[in-house]
Every structure is written in structure tokens, then in C-alpha cells.
Design a protein around this nucleic acid. Structure first.
Lengths: 228, 228
DNA sequence: TTTTAAATTTAGACAAATCTAAAAATAGTT
DNA sequence: AACTATTTTTAGATTTGTCTAAATTTAAAA
């Protein structure tokens, strides 16, 4: 099984790709069929537009659809959506690692780059970046078969004193939070060790680099790590 | 004067950008106003569609237009068109130098990449590629003010025996010609020395690398060099 | 279980970019 | 200068993705 370039290349509009991607993200979260309203909200449009597009995607066998029952991805739809997410995240890695972008600057540009259609481009980019498995926010990059290989990420707040974690991403992607992390010099790939957790407010004292700092429960819940 | 990002970012559709670029290329060739038919041919569409788009671009003050008199670029239109050509050619350099693309593979992908709108992206890319002045075909890359700095290129056939040229591009960009050049190992940046020109058929004997070969008048006319 | 509220779909309209076919303007030729 | 032939423009239709408003279905509550 492999990405169906022909389909992607010849048959999908920008709008179709974006809807498919939104369905992919929403169904990953909920695990069940994506509702018309949720899809419309995600796409910042109206329910009637979402219905129209779901029908079109169903006609092309990218989603399963029964009236009033929401949409789920077909195998082919999931593969295409995964390929778009793959491209998005690879471009994000490129922007951060090669072009000096910050965490909080890459998303918008990657939203456009993800729609460039060229198998060679993405394969070469993947190789050029040395086959990364997570993007700059720690989100996993699907492989070319649409499968996610990266290990599970957990919030920093779930670690106990003396446990160590590799910083792999954030839950809250707001500019404010990312800039806060920049300020205290926490970045992707940093090793963190839990020193102590305050019972009364959930704040966590962590050691990393040459620092030892205390961060709030909110911050700890929004920082993803992979246990090491 | 600088690229008007706001205009590019917020006001131009893909189609408008492509038409503007086509007008830029056509008027560079002829120097005079671009006719509706020529524009339609270049865009592989019908004259009526070209008229419609010219009107729209004229409304936005990107072209000067009088009925039946064709179109010329305004200062702002030229700047935007140049920025698109700049992006196209920078991406071509990136694809060849970093992602192992060949001369004859880059154009199609660059056609899409050129429409990605981000000042930071293109500035960083430019720096990352070390400020190239020509693309892999030897065509000049406009600077960020829309100006072309690169030296003039001339066909190899215009050189006389014992003159040397740096291979900077091709006139004929057909896959066949580019593959022919690959085969005889002529590439961008190669130094060529004219050994001899045959009077009867215009063919040229050239020395380069460890080779000494004879190429036809047609080939020599389609290979651009910069005298050195 | 019936009624009400919410979610979803349909119907009809609109803007963008295109087309075909017909009308209008320009240019070339005698 | 008048007449073709070509070029260009206009008018009206089509497709895609969107909208609003109304109709329909499902879900929740009394």
C-alpha cells in the first residue's frame, strides 16, 4: 500500500484537501464519526457547506457518509489526509531546522506548503531532514504509508519526582505559551528531570540544562514529554 | 521601495498571480504592450478569459489597460510579478542544490511553490541558499526590490574560437535538450572554451572538463554562457 | 409519548474563473 | 477609402465553493 499520487495529483482541490485533513484530526480526537457542525466549526464555515463537501468527498470514496450520521474516513481518505499531515509536519521541521523559524511561526506557512503535490519533493525533503518522526511541536509525522511511528507523548504533569522526560511538544499552542517557553529556554529536545511537585498548587520544580525552575501546574499540563 | 506584502498576501488569487507573471514574461520579451491573444496563449486559455482578467488586474492597478490596446504592467504590478519570479527561481535553486532534483524536474514544482506567501520564508530561503543570482537554468533571480543584477547571458554560438564562457543556462528548455546536456555532461557552472567553429554547418568544437566535443549549431544557439 | 430544541440537509442565490458564440473594433489589402 | 480578416470585447452559461433561509430529521425533556 502506498500514497495514491494520481488521486491526490489529479482529483483533489485545495478545499477538499483541507476538509479531509480536518476530518482526520477531528476523528483522531474523538474516535467516532465527525459531525457536520464540528467539521463546519473546524473549517470556520457553515454546516451547509460542510454537508456539501462531505457529499463530494463521499462521492469520491474518501469518506463514508450516511445522512444525519456524520462522516468517517475511508482507507483511501485516511491515507490522503495522513499524507497532507505528513507534508505539513515535514515542512514545519524544515522551517525550524533550516530556515530559523520559531515554533510559533511555522504553522501558517506550513498550511500552504502542505498542498504542494510532488512525491519526489516530499521524499527528498524527508531524507534531507534525516527522517524526522516528530514536528517542532512534538506531533508525530506519519510515514509514507500513513502510519505513525513515534512513541506516545504524555504531559509533563504526569511524571513523578526523579523521572526524566524528553520535551517533544505542547498541548496549548498559543503564541503566549510558546513565547513563555522560549523565555525560560525550554525547547524541543530538552531533557527535563522532575525535582519536586508542590501538593498545594500542582506546580513542578524541574531541572534542565543548567537551570532549576518551578513551573505552574497549567504549564506542566501543557508540555508534552516522552519518558526516558 | 519594497515588495507590497499586504497586497500580495491579502488581495491576489492564484489565477491573478499567474496572469501577472505571464504578462511580466511576455512584456520582457517584446518590450511593448502584451496582447490579449498572446496572453491567452501563454495561459493556455481563451481570449475572452484573458480580457476578463486584464480588466480585473487593471481595476486593482496592477496593469495599464485601454480597450483593444493590450496591457502593460504598472510599477506595482511589475514588483509583484518580479517577486513571484524571484520565488520561483529561488525554489528551483533549492530543489536542485538541496533536494537532488535535475534541471528538467524543477519547473512544475516551482510553479506551485512560487505562490507561497511569506516574506520571512523567502528571505530565509535566499540566505540559506547564499543569495544566488541565477536559477538552475541560468535565468536571473530578481532581488527583493524586483531588480535583476545578474550579468548578461549570450548564446554559446556567439563566442569566437579561444573565447571562454561559463555555462549559465539554456534557451530551449525541452526535456530532450536538457537530457542531451546531461548525457554529454554539460551542466550549469561548467567552463567551456571554443576550439573551432565549422563554417559549413555552424557546429562548434568545445573543450570542457576532460572532454573535447563537437556540438551542433542548434545546440550551441540554445546554450547560454557568460563570457569569462 | 408527545413536544420542543438542536442538528442536519435542501433549495436557491452569489462570486470567481472559465467557456462559447456573437458583436464590435482594429489592421491590412486592394 | 472601402472591404475583409483578424483581434478583441461582450453577453450569457457553467462549475466550484460558499452563503442564507427554510425544511427535515434526530435527540432531549416534560
Amino acid at each position: 500500500m502506498y500514497f495514491c499520487t494520481h488521486v491526490i495529483l489529479y482529483c483533489m482541490t485545495l478545499s477538499e484537501e483541507n476538509y479531509l485533513k480536518a476530518i482526520y484530526h477531528l476523528s483522531a480526537k474523538s474516535g467516532i464519526a465527525v459531525t457536520t457542525n464540528d467539521l463546519a466549526d473546524a473549517m470556520d464555515t457553515k454546516a451547509s457547506s460542510a454537508t456539501d463537501m462531505i457529499k463530494k468527498l463521499a462521492d469520491k470514496d474518501f469518506v463514508n457518509y450516511k445522512k444525519y450520521q456524520g462522516a468517517t474516513l475511508t482507507k483511501e481518505g485516511r491515507l490522503i489526509a495522513a499524507s497532507i499531515v505528513r507534508k505539513h509536519r515535514l515542512w514545519e521541521v524544515f522551517l525550524v531546522e533550516k530556515l530559523n523559524f520559531n515554533w510559533d511561526e511555522v504553522h501558517e506557512v506550513a498550511e500552504h506548503l502542505e498542498h504542494i503535490k510532488s512525491d519526489k519533493l516530499i521524499e527528498e525533503l524527508d531524507a534531507y531532514l534525516d527522517y524526522p518522526t516528530v514536528d517542532p511541536h512534538g506531533d508525530p509525522i506519519p510515514d509514507k504509508y500513513g502510519e505513525i511511528q513515534a512513541g506516545k507523548k504524555v504531559p509533563l504533569s504526569s511524571l513523578k519526582p526523579s523521572e526524566k522526560g524528553l520535551c517533544v511538544g505542547v498541548k496549548n499552542t498559543s503564541k503566549e505559551f510558546l513565547q513563555y517557553l522560549d523565555k525560560i529556554e525550554i525547547a524541543l529536545g530538552i531533557e527535563l528531570t522532575i525535582i519536586e511537585k508542590e501538593v498545594f498548587d500542582g506546580s513542578v520544580t524541574i531541572a534542565y540544562k543548567e537551570f532549576q525552575k518551578n513551573i505552574s501546574a497549567v504549564a506542566a499540563a501543557n508540555l508534552y514529554v516522552r519518558k526516558i
